Computed example of a mutant assay.
Amino acid sequence: MNSIFKIICVALIASSASAQHENHTQPEANATTAKAKSPRTSAMAMVGDNHVHIDYGSPSVRGRQIWNGLVAYDQVWATGAHKATWVDFSQDVVINGQTVPKGKYGFFTIPGPAEWTLILSRDWDMHLADDYKPEQDVVRVQVKPETQNDLTEALTYEVVPEGKHKGEIRMRWEKVGVSLPFQNK
């Protein structure tokens, strides 16, 4: 009886595989192997005892005009693709003279040709900047964008330690970069 059961199981498995082949269907696992155009990725580093983690969608230039094209000047941008970019500090930090308690924050920017506004918001879980509210801002910093000679095809973040107590969050895309300096409290 046991051997009949094994034969039936083998026949059912073979029949299922044959049906998938005949219907030109593929297992679901293969459907997720296609490369996303704006994959979700992360950057992180230890700055002293502070673990700094950034989660973001990383779009690519792909021949498009990025600044004042795909990304409008003078409008709030989620500084990544799809869901808003977020930053998590495991310890309190000081940014631009202001204490930012440990925790997770949305990282938004307002790009401009000569100046950018970098923003940490209490609201980190949203699609793009659809529900962005300035009253949720924890800190805003004005910075000058840095022009780079080399093209950065995919939007890239880095957490760069500068000694045990200081660091920077750096964002680069196309030929532009901005940095948000912070200090552990």
Score class of each variant (00 low, 15 high):
Gly167His: 01
Lys164Gly: 15
Pro113Lys: 14
Asp123Met: 08
Trp67Phe: 13
Arg64Tyr: 14
His51Ile: 01
Tyr157Arg: 04
Thr33Asn: 14
Met46Ile: 01
Ala31Lys: 00
Arg122Phe: 07
Gly97Tyr: 01
Lys185Cys: 15
Gly57Glu: 05
Val61Pro: 02
Ile54His: 05
Tyr157Ala: 03
Asn50Trp: 01
Ala14Met: 15
Trp77Met: 00
Gly48Ser: 14
Trp116Val: 06
Ile66Phe: 02
Val52His: 09
Thr85Cys: 04
Ile13His: 04
Ala31Pro: 02
Asp88Ser: 14
Asn96Pro: 06
Met171Asn: 13
Ala84Ile: 10
Tyr132His: 09
Ala81Ser: 02
Glu28Asn: 05
Ile8Phe: 00
Gly103Asp: 00
Asn96Lys: 14
Val61Ala: 06
Val71Lys: 00
Met126Ala: 11
Val76Leu: 04
Leu70Cys: 03
Lys6Leu: 10
Gln98Leu: 09
Gly69Ser: 06
Gly106His: 04
Val138Asp: 09
Thr25Glu: 15
Val100Ser: 02
Gln75Phe: 04
His127Gln: 12
Arg40Lys: 05
Tyr105Ala: 04
Met171Leu: 13
Trp173Leu: 07
Asp130Val: 12
Leu70Ile: 07
Trp86Lys: 14
Glu115Cys: 10
Arg140Gln: 03
Lys102Leu: 03
Ala154Gly: 14
Ala34Ser: 09
Gln136Gly: 14
Pro161Ser: 02
Phe182Ile: 12
Gln98Tyr: 07
Gly63His: 02
Pro27Thr: 12
Ala11His: 00
Thr156Leu: 10
Val160Pro: 08
Tyr73Lys: 04
Phe108Gln: 00
Glu162Leu: 11
Gln142Ile: 12
